[in-house]
């Protein structure tokens, strides 16, 4: 996904002279083609995230569209005030590409995890927050970015994530995609959790339970209508996120439902990471398992809720 994202920046920059790239201190070889062909628009600015964001703001004020890339935890937390003031207050078209959203950097420990990034980014007025599900969706999304107004935070997965997006669905920022039609059990999810939601839905289907799956690739602005529509059809609604349940997708969905969903409400569960610093290492997958976010666990959670709350059809 990262490769697809950065390749898109390169392709876009070839066509659009407003686009510049700013990295912090990325791995050797990053965007070598960009650097070789458009050296004046390629910046590698060192481990200085505050300056990187301020500098991007200055470039954007003068008509450029900076794409900034570094590790998600540092891109969101380290320079938060610059994001709020330099980018959001000034409403500037800077694109923030965060490597390793969620638990990708599990073996590197809690300093490198980005599990509250969605919460803190969506708290900023004017910030758009997008977490594509896979490399193909990333490509579809990236072509929409140059002319999108205001700042955008782009959450990257690890790479090599299974492609579950479908070309025919297209991509519109702020428009959720129903990968499985709304049903009495609904899974609302984002980013690389989409593939796990689909696998869980397949497993539940085999057990005779239809699951709707809504890919909310844009967490902000949230597709309010799609979320409400999904909730109206559902008796059981789960939000699934590789993120703390404090302030992320689940919270955004609840806020929307609270503002617009008529009674009766479905049973709602938010699956994600509890309010902790994960204390283990391992891998993204093993950590997801620890937090009950792998497909069999998601299916099991649905079964458990069903055992307590039978669907209308079954009762």
């Amino acid at each position: 996904m990262r490769k697809a994202c950065l390749q898109s920046v390169y392709e876009l920059a070839k066509k659009d002279p407003r686009i510049v790239f700013i990295g912090s201190d990325l791995g050797p070889g990053t965007l070598d083609d960009f650097k070789a062909e458009m050296p004046e628009r390629f910046f590698m600015e060192g481990v200085a995230e505050q300056n990187v964001i301020g500098m991007a703001a200055g470039l954007a004020m003068e008509g450029f569209i900076p794409y900034v890339n570094t590790i998600a935890s540092f891109l969101t937390r380290r320079c938060y005030e610059q994001l709020a003031i330099d980018l959001c207050l000034h409403n500037l078209p800077v694109r923030l590409i965060g490597n390793g959203g969620g638990l990708v950097y599990a073996p590197l420990g809690p300093t490198h995890l980005a599990i509250e990034d969605i919460a803190i980014m969506r708290a900023l007025p004017r910030m758009t927050v997008v977490a594509p599900s896979d490399a193909e969706q990333m490509k579809q999304f990236m072509v929409e970015t140059p002319d999108w107004p205001g700042p955008v935070y782009i959450r990257l997965g690890k790479g090599g994530d299974p492609v579950v997006s479908r070309p025919e669905d297209g991509f519109e920022i702020g428009k959720a995609i129903a990968l499985r039609p709304a049903a009495e059990v609904a899974l609302i999810t984002t980013g690389v959790m989409v593939n796990r939601a689909l696998a869980a839905a397949d497993q539940l289907k085999a057990d005779g339970i239809d699951c709707g799956v809504l890919n909310v690739h844009t967490i902000k602005p949230l597709d309010r209508e799609a979320v409400l529509e999904t909730a109206r059809e559902a008796r059981i609604l789960l939000t699934l996120e590789e993120h703390t349940t404090t302030g992320g997708l689940g919270s955004a969905v609840l806020e929307t439902l609270s503002d617009g969903l008529e009674q009766p409400w479905p049973v709602i569960r938010r699956l994600g990471i509890p309010d902790v610093f994960p204390g283990e290492y391992g891998s993204q997958d093993s950590m997801m398992e620890s937090f009950g976010l792998q497909p069999p666990q998601i299916a099991e959670t649905v079964h458990q809720i069903l055992s307590e709350t039978p669907l209308s059809k079954a009762s």
């Binding site: 004046e40 505050q50 301020g54 500098m55 703001a57 200055g58 003068e62 008509g63 000034h90």
Partner: peptide, 25 residues
């Protein structure tokens, strides 16, 4: 007024970006 300031330590980075923009343009 070229930039909203008040939170301290922001202006010089913004001006770096503006100066790089001037060079590019």
């Amino acid at each position: 007024v070229e930039a909203s300031t008040g939170a301290l330590g922001h202006g010089l980075s913004i001006a770096v970006g503006m100066a790089l923009a001037a060079r590019l343009q």
